[in-house]
């Protein structure tokens, strides 16, 4: 056995320097370590965020990996801990443990068309990969972002999507499940967009994140288009309590999603994907 380690379950205090209300139920916290210094991470990784007295939740990092001076998390209020985090204000402190998990293999995609498929709040864990791709834009063929949301009011990072769409070297397709007549964009599921988007299937890397059902159908469509499954990557969600492969909760077949994931190469988990209640 090795020498006695530090306490891996003890969070570090980070102060909130900015709060952005993104959507009715979604907000972004910008954090800085109380102790000073930087926070290095890779796109796709997550942290365990602790709200004093309420508990801890796994939240993916939604900021730019090139900017380690601040830590950015985009959070959807769905339970008591995320609601407690949502009640915090600039100057308040949260506990942070991490970063944990596997990254999006953005460098691996150099030379390929990069296809990013996001659904709902699943755009948040992909945003660091988008920043990374934009910073290395000349190293890719096409850069295509396909994003599905519930309604036009639920489009996350709308201003940024509009900014990216205005670039000549990025294709952004946004589609919503339902809309009223005021919406000038697409209606329909994101798989419809995948079916038609112009990319070279044999030289494409796809990064997919969203609800599990959406990912199943999106990957299906990407596969139908002819993209090899070892170039398709998905980010899985399971109940993560420790981030260390220790509490057992996030197991998915032989994998600890917190440690062996959340980003998986699809060819390596293709057999697990359709198994129900695994």
């Amino acid at each position: 056995m090795t020498a006695l380690p530090a306490e891996p379950m003890l969070p570090s205090p980070f102060r909130i320097v900015k709060v952005v209300r993104e959507l009715a139920d979604t907000f972004t916290l910008v954090l800085q370590p109380e102790a000073g210094g930087a926070f290095a991470f890779r796109s796709g990784q997550f942290n365990m965020l602790y709200a004093f007295g309420a508990g801890e939740v796994p939240i993916s990092i939604s900021g730019d990996p090139a900017d380690d001076g601040q830590l950015v998390h985009t959070i959807r209020s769905v339970g008591p801990v995320t609601q407690a985090l949502g009640a915090l204000k600039v100057g308040d402190v949260v506990g942070v443990r991490g970063p944990f998990g596997t990254p999006w293999p953005v460098e691996e995609a150099f030379g390929d068309d990069l296809v990013i498929i996001a659904g709902g709040v699943g755009l948040a864990p992909l945003r660091p990969a988008i920043y990374q791709a934009l910073a290395n834009r000349q190293k890719f063929g096409k850069l295509i972002i396909m994003y599905g949301a519930r309604t036009p009011q639920d489009i996350l990072f709308r201003k940024e999507l509009e900014k990216w769409r205005s670039r000549f070297d990025v294709n952004v397709h946004v589609t919503v499940d339902r809309a009223t007549g005021q919406w000038a964009g697409r209606v329909g599921v994101v798989t419809n967009v995948v079916a038609r988007a112009g990319f070279d299937p044999l030289h494409t890397t796809a990064l997919v994140c969203g609800p599990e059902v959406m990912m199943r159908y999106a990957v299906d469509m990407v596969e139908k288009r002819g993209v090899p499954t070892d170039k398709v990557h998905v980010s899985m969600e399971r109940n993560m309590k420790c981030g260390l492969g220790l509490c057992g909760h996030c197991q998915w077949g032989p994998h600890f999603v917190c440690r062996d994931g959340p980003v998986f190469r699809f060819s390596e988990i293709a057999e697990l994907f359709p198994v129900r209640e695994l």
């Binding site: 306490e7 205090p13 102060r15 100057g91 506990g95």
Partner: peptide
């Protein structure tokens, strides 16, 4: 016990298990 946290100003102080 993993830790004990005590409120301190807008933040809190942590002590180990």
């Amino acid at each position: 016990r993993l830790f004990r946290a005590e409120r301190a100003g807008r933040g809190f102080r942590l002590s180990g298990g």
